[in-house]
């Protein structure tokens, strides 16, 4: 029996993440909701979710003294960042008049803008909310049995821009193509919510709980 730590630092509703992991592991594994850095470091794999604003997230990470544990886990074992748990892996976010983030990945988090438009000039709503396609930019064990271009559920107003294009594992179009999925070694991170993305999302979580962290 392996242990899957879901990092709980007070940022958003993690019940769904735990529910979804319990369904895909069929209760074979231990899913622990935890804010304890030792438990995060001791787990076999780590899910790092998050909702809300970048500034609040970074403050909460430090209040719970989770920074070192998250950085360590992201460099060692199967690690899944979701939504804000993806964005704060980067160096810097535009949100909250600029927020320094964890710096695990090189790049920026940017705002879609108050006047976001599609290529035809039509107004696009912000937040980007709903089911959008994820084009698989390269092969990855976590894409197994998921059709290229499957729809996932998104809700966000900021998007990621990584410096190294080789890290992009998935691309989504909203006015322009942005990196919706990032992968590097044992780390995989998505802007969308697999725990809210019906069958495709559950398949991704199933792939994650069975992944050895290798490419």
């Amino acid at each position: 029996m392996q242990t899957i730590a879901v990092v709980d630092y007070g940022m958003g509703n993690l019940r769904s993440v735990v529910n979804a992991l319990e369904v895909v592991t069929q209760d074979r594994d231990r899913v622990v909701l935890t804010a304890d850095p030792q438990q995060v470091l001791g787990a076999d794999r780590v899910v790092f979710p998050g909702q809300g604003a970048a500034g609040d997230c970074m403050r909460a990470i430090d209040e719970y003294a989770l920074r070192e544990a998250i950085i360590a886990a992201a460099g060692q074992r199967p690690f899944l960042g979701i939504c804000m748990g993806m964005q704060v892996l980067i160096e810097h976010s535009e949100e909250n008049q600029g927020t320094a983030c964890l710096g695990i990945l090189e790049g920026q988090v940017k705002y879609f803008g108050d006047d976001h438009r599609d290529q035809g000039g039509a107004k696009l709503k912000v937040p980007h909310m709903g089911w959008n396609r994820v084009a698989q930019a390269r092969s990855h064990p976590l894409w197994q049995s998921i059709e290229d271009g499957s729809r996932f559920y998104f809700v966000h107003s900021y998007y990621l821009e990584v410096t190294d294009p080789d890290l992009v594992a998935g691309v989504t179009d909203y006015g322009f193509a942005f990196s919706s999925v990032i992968a590097r070694d044992n780390l995989f991170a998505l802007q969308c919510h697999p725990e809210k993305s019906a069958d495709a999302g559950l398949q991704l979580l199933r792939n994650f709980v069975n992944w050895d962290g290798q490419l």
Partner: peptide, 8 residues
């Protein structure tokens, strides 16, 4: 445009 319109 690839964001789907939702039915709720």
């Amino acid at each position: 445009m690839s964001l789907a319109k939702r039915i709720i």
